[in-house]
Design a binder for these strands. Structure first.
Lengths: 327, 327
DNA sequence: GCGCACTATGACAACGTTGTCCCCCAGCGG
DNA sequence: CCGCTGGGGGACAACGTTGTCATAGTGCGC
């Protein structure tokens, strides 16, 4: 800006005025300044501007588990979309389910003075955010609740989802319904397990520990589990999968199996309708999740200081074939 | 920092020393300062720090087409991974194939003084980046080349890919091979068309305009095209799909068709192996693309000022079934 | 011709840091 | 007792902006 001022033969304040479209600059002066800007390729330094104005940095921090996972990339897309409408950029990072990494990312974002934080919690410890929140940085947790702070949270109806999955399978005559879920210390996995259990009880088929296998899962652990379930005296005739990855592992493991159990997967995924049989899922909308959380965040930025809210988004069962196989 | 200094009864410079682990602070003083920092929840303002030090902002700007697309979210993940190892955050944005939006994002990132830019070009005009590049911001284009500037570029072997697809289909006896590609003003679409044409010529089956349908495509345009191809006097017996979205549209359109043409899709996608028949694809690695581009960027940041490079990543044909149907 | 309003412009401080330089004081050798 | 050394700490400027206030010039009414 200094260089521009020198080249145009004006003070830096005048350059500032031109750059910010402030009134009170003579057209011919403005023209000279613009020419100088063009010639030097000047671009105003946003850091300095925000520092001086003490105003928003125009950024939102997003901490999620893994941008590579289609579910979270859908969330990211929705967040970005709304942030754009409100003139903000998104800085994001993946925690890979590591609480330390989550914390590191969130605090780094705070150091950059993001206007707000969206976090998919990896751990249960979030008191490290208390100073930031007290300092006025709004924080919204999504997909999972925070461990030890009270804050806005957007969840999906995990319990309702697995209740519905079990009810649906039971209505098709299944009495031996298995559940393959993610690691039980992950909030969503635990909730889905609770829903599964409740569904079993409601359907009058009872909860049987041996039909449950919690993760962490990979393709081979899923394969082993399926063999175990198949080899029982009373084999499982249906399976509820706890998330999209597990559903895929199950599909791969069953690819060369003739007699397939019924299957309902949690999370919808692309091409589920083109498999044979098409896969019945508990669907929920990644972009709705991202949108709800971002809307909440912006409401806070707009001055809403009502007590923290907890929003639970509905899920819906999409019957496609794999879950409508009779026992 | 001012408040911390006051509370600890020292000067702000001493606080700065403590925060930066600089030597020359008495342990007891440091302790007092740390206590004050803790009590006030102080976090150093990175913007101010970077402004003062004139150093890197520790950020990388990433402009891509759509984070929601699994291919680009794979790229994003790889970029993030490497940036993390090098202590950088990633700021990203989706252009949605809109050159204006791409430009807006890139320039906004420049205003934020990112250390470098990774761009999946939406348009052909990139001279707007010349001042930034001259000012020392390294820029790497990925997936597509820049329009009118010379810069580092990482591409995949689009031409080789479709040549191989056509050759493969011809070797299974197909002589009427169709090509459904994206809008021809998109670089990759155009390259893939060229490869298709070259493949046809090499295979000695000739290039026939009526077998080509360039986009933009949606599900219904693909459906119409397939009907046209099927209704010809000499119908197409095989199809090459220009990208993952088009492949999926084709699969959906063919879901209820008895007599299916052979199919090879460009871009691999999850579950391609579980469809029936499993889908043969020209695969290339999103994370390899992201990694190559980011490595190149960091090389520039490390001072490499050799002439701009153009890296072309190989593709490989993955035969799974849909492309091995004999004519 | 004088004062007044108004326009165009500039000088300067400040945002929150850090780099440079300087000062104070204790300890020590002569 | 003097001077020197070195450790601990502070004052001040500067990074690139913008907000505040001042000022010079211009035109206009009386």
């Amino acid at each position: 800006m200094n260089d521009v001022a020198r080249l145009a033969g004006v003070s830096i304040k005048t350059v500032s005025r031109v750059v910010n479209d402030e009134p009170g600059v003579h057209p011919s002066t403005a023209e000279r300044v613009l020419a100088a800007i063009d010639q030097l390729g000047f671009r105003r330094n946003l850091s300095a501007r925000n520092l001086r104005r003490g105003s928003s940095t125009g950024t939102i921090g997003l901490v999620l588990e893994d941008v590579g996972n289609p579910f979270y990339s859908g969330v990211t897309r929705a967040v970005e979309e709304i942030a754009r409408l409100r003139g903000r950029q998104v800085i994001s990072g993946s925690s890979d389910e590591d609480p330390g990494r989550e914390r590191e990312l969130a605090l780094e974002f705070c150091s950059r003075r993001v206007d707000g934080l969206l976090i998919v919690p990896a751990g249960l410890q979030h008191s490290y955010l208390v100073p930031e929140m007290r300092a006025g940085t709004p924080v919204v947790f999504l997909d999972r609740p925070a461990g030890d702070v009270v804050a806005d949270t957007v969840l999906v109806d995990n319990i309702g989802g697995t209740v519905e999955a079990v009810t649906h399978l039971a209505s098709h005559g299944h009495r031996r319904i298995a559940f393959l879920g993610d690691a039980p210390d992950i909030f969503t996995a635990n909730e889905r397990l609770r829903g599964y259990r409740e569904g079993c009880v409601r359907a009058g088929i009872g909860y049987h520990e041996e039909l449950v296998a919690m993760g962490p899962h990979d393709e081979s652990s899923v394969r082993t589990t399926l063999q175990r379930l198949h080899g029982m005296r009373e084999p499982a005739t249906a399976i509820v999968a706890g998330n999209n990855r597990i559903t895929v592992y199950i599909l791969r493991s069953l690819a060369d199996v003739a007699e397939r159990p019924a299957l309902v997967g949690f999370d919808d995924f692309e091409l589920a309708d083109l498999l044979s049989p098409p896969v019945t899922v508990i669907a929920h909308d990644a972009s709705a999740l991202g949108k709800a959380a971002t809307d909440l965040l912006f409401a806070r930025l707009d001055g809403d200081n009502s007590p923290p809210r907890r929003v639970v988004l509905p899920v819906r069962l999409v019957p496609r074939g794999s879950g409508e196989v009779h026992a």
